[in-house]
Write a protein that binds this DNA or RNA. Structure first.
Lengths: 193, 193
DNA sequence: TCGATATATATCACACTGATATATATCCGT
DNA sequence: ACGGATATATATCAGTGTGATATATATCGA
């Protein structure tokens, strides 16, 4: 999904500046979709050119150049239509799992440190999602996103804690010679791709 | 993590062409990191210029221009060093959860269709990871990545199936007026960001 | 024999990130 | 009251990656 579409969606929740939209994404979207200023501001510019949003510049007073955007009727329709046409997919990008994939090439204490790092990361994410839970202003859909995020994090955290000791014990016993024995991962038995 | 680094890592498992690396990524990495030809081929070119890999062109016979890459000693060291310095992080990008976040703007049957789509997607992913399990050539680290992927998918699938009926029932009862009542998600009570 | 699929590389427009630059305002400690 | 940190607010850009497209040959099955 394009950042342009996300911005349009954010504006369907209420008028906002680019900065407001960034804050909204950080507060509510961060665990399932990122967006930076470098994509938000150009997106808003384009949306305005396409007349999907109106722009009201608040100049003179205090902050110069505060640009408040408001979605138009055609913008709202365009967003809903685009949502309906967006396939329901997802993609994980995990440096942590890449690290684990190549764990046999790392010293054991580095591996231990990476496991500790991701545990901290998962804990913080989980605490944050727990702090969001139970707000009466949330729609059922928003609660669903938070609930699924929490469920997935709890599972990953539990898996990490269950497997860690065994993983590190095996890793310590790994002879250096085994590192030269590593081959292509051609183990798939022509199954469903 | 850069695709360049991933390519170097792939070559630490054995000599390969760009095409082989793409296949390896699809078979083993797909559930936690993507990479396309458009990034793999330029990465290999760069790696060769930096002398982290050697290139052996197999021309003349049958396929012209088959470029087989082999990691050098300095390439192997560079990869291990870069791995050790890579922070253990991860980032989800989920169009599905964006869809759910804005579920109140969608017709109920479209929402139902999106839930069905993601269920199918999760099931296929899970079946694939199950087909990879138990290969004796896998390192402990590789088994860990597969195991965590399976655990997370099972949890998400269970959550989806548990919540779906309730979600759709609430959605059906949602009056159109409620769609104009939606506000900014300012519900966070200044907790750990 | 013909179409589909697999092998194999290359390129490019478009999109996004992460860093950087530029200001002002406000809050807090000393 | 001063100064530093943080927050508000926009803009730009080099570097990186995607997804599509182009180009060939080989192989497999109907």
């Amino acid at each position: 999904m394009r950042v342009k579409t996300l911005c349009l969606g954010a504006l369907c929740l209420g008028d906002a500046t680019g900065y407001d939209i960034k804050k909204l994404f950080e507060a509510a979207f961060n665990h399932f979709h990122g967006a930076s200023f470098g994509s938000i501001y150009p997106s808003l510019k384009q949306l305005e050119q396409e007349e999907l949003v109106d722009l009201h510049v608040e100049a003179g007073e205090k902050h110069p150049d505060r640009k408040l955007y408001k979605v138009t009727d055609s913008g709202r329709s365009a967003f809903i239509e685009e949502l309906a046409q967006t396939p329901a997919s997802e993609q994980l990008s995990s440096d942590f799992l890449v690290l684990l994939f190549f764990a046999h090439l790392l010293p054991t204490d580095v591996l231990r440190q990476k496991l500790a790092e991701i545990e901290t990361y998962y804990c913080h994410e989980l605490e944050y999602l727990e702090s969001l839970s139970g707000c009466p202003r949330h729609t059922t859909g928003i609660d669903f996103t938070i609930g699924m995020g929490k469920a997935a994090l709890r599972t990953k955290l539990a898996y990490l804690r269950e497997q860690r000791d065994q993983l590190l014990a095996t890793h310590l016993q790994l002879p250096d010679a085994a590192r030269d024995e590593m081959l292509h991962a051609d183990c798939q038995q022509e199954s469903t791709a």
